[in-house]
Design a protein around this nucleic acid. Structure first.
Lengths: 222, 222
DNA sequence: GTCTATACACGGATAGAC
DNA sequence: GTCTATCCGTGTATAGAC
């Protein structure tokens, strides 16, 4: 961004008024913020661009002026979300002890069950990615870092502990990710039917540790 | 033979000509068969009822005459699929030894990765179920038997073997189901990145068995 | 160069003809 | 019971205001 050399005749006020670029950026932000809310509520297919535009105080044309298509708008939203999530999960999983790692895993899963709407939105987008190679490429590119995170962390953790886990760190990352996703989906259908400790117990077992985190009598009768 | 029973008084002839009911049933079948093909190809949201009707040799009106809404049509399709799948999986999992059980599990997973379009369709419907309580109730009702299947089978299997699995049969069913779903989703994005033995290895471990099915050196170094 | 206003095509849904 | 005609909403495209 260069200096605000608007017009020679203009009063050389810096940042007095928004430049074109800034205004555009502001509109883009407003649209993205509105889109996050509206998509969240009704899903991707259930949301009209009209609704997004209205929520942001614009018209449909403004949307198309800033995003090529509806999918493009959503992609921008996803990108932003992944960046933020990467930071959060990274901090949550980069712990000292392996016990703390599982606590972090638990926290992530709990958050996932609460962010129901967002996960459903992601799933909707996953569907598009699974069907369209172009979208898939973008999707993988943007989420690659996030999916590798737990695996790499675990790899390091296991190595420094000398555990004889039945799986590699990468495999564990895949398994934990898949299990978390699958259990979250169950949760969305029958929240009360899911034991909240199940994920961590399974994770501990797969990492080669005792399934029971702390004390707790394992009265797991039928 | 009261052949020409065109009178509304009595249709005492069975099977001579298609009754209204039978004709309707036939059309319904045609529409369902066509819908299965077309939905499979382009997904739920990507398919128009026009396309369905055309594939079956009718017009949109015929569809609406047999199904209240697009969702209703899809629900009928799902119902049929679940029934059939329940039978198949039931046969596949009701085995003698626990080794055969894992073979069956493997076969089911492999089929799931091949039936890509169908699983994606189911996922699309799951989304609708997760968002709409009414659809959710129907969805759960129809799929309840299927989800309980592996759990109950495992419960019996574990009981008769006296294994000290860290999970109950029901928990194992949930875990295996969730893991299978999550891994299948991974597979749809990056088919070559998924080790096809991963599911069964994890399943064996969670059931309290040696993760390695047969022989194979466990060179699971990083 | 951005946003508004408007137009168009397509798809889900409904009403009425046959 | 199926088809035709029609309505309405929505994604997409474009012309024009500022």
């Amino acid at each position: 961004m260069t200096s605000d050399t608007r017009r020679p005749s203009e009063p050389a006020e810096p940042r007095r008024r928004l430049t074109r670029e800034e205004a555009r950026q502001r509109t883009r932000e407003n649209l993205l913020a509105a889109a996050a809310v509206v998509f969240d509520r009704a899903g991707y297919n259930g949301t009209s661009l009209e609704a997004v535009a209205e929520a942001a105080g614009y018209t449909r044309g403004a949307v198309y002026s800033n995003f090529a298509t509806k999918a493009d708008l959503f992609m921008a939203l996803l990108e932003r979300f992944v960046e933020q999530e990467e930071a959060v999960q990274g901090a949550q999983l980069e712990t000292q002890t392996i016990e703390q790692f599982f606590d972090g895993l638990d926290a992530i899963f709990e958050k996932q069950t609460q962010d129901r709407q967002w996960v459903l939105l992601q799933l909707e987008f996953f569907l598009a990615a699974a069907r369209d190679p172009a979208i898939r490429a973008k999707y993988l590119e943007k989420t690659a870092g996030l999916t590798d995170l737990s695996g790499q962390t675990l790899d390091a953790k296991l190595a420094e502990m000398g555990l004889d886990a039945p799986f590699t760190g990468r495999e564990l990352g895949i398994l934990l990710n898949a299990l978390g996703t699958g259990l979250a989906l169950d949760f969305y259908l029958e929240p009360e039917a899911l034991d909240p400790t199940l994920l961590v117990r399974a994770a501990r077992l797969m990492a080669g540790l005792d399934p029971r985190p702390r004390g707790g009598g394992g009265s797991s009768g039928s």
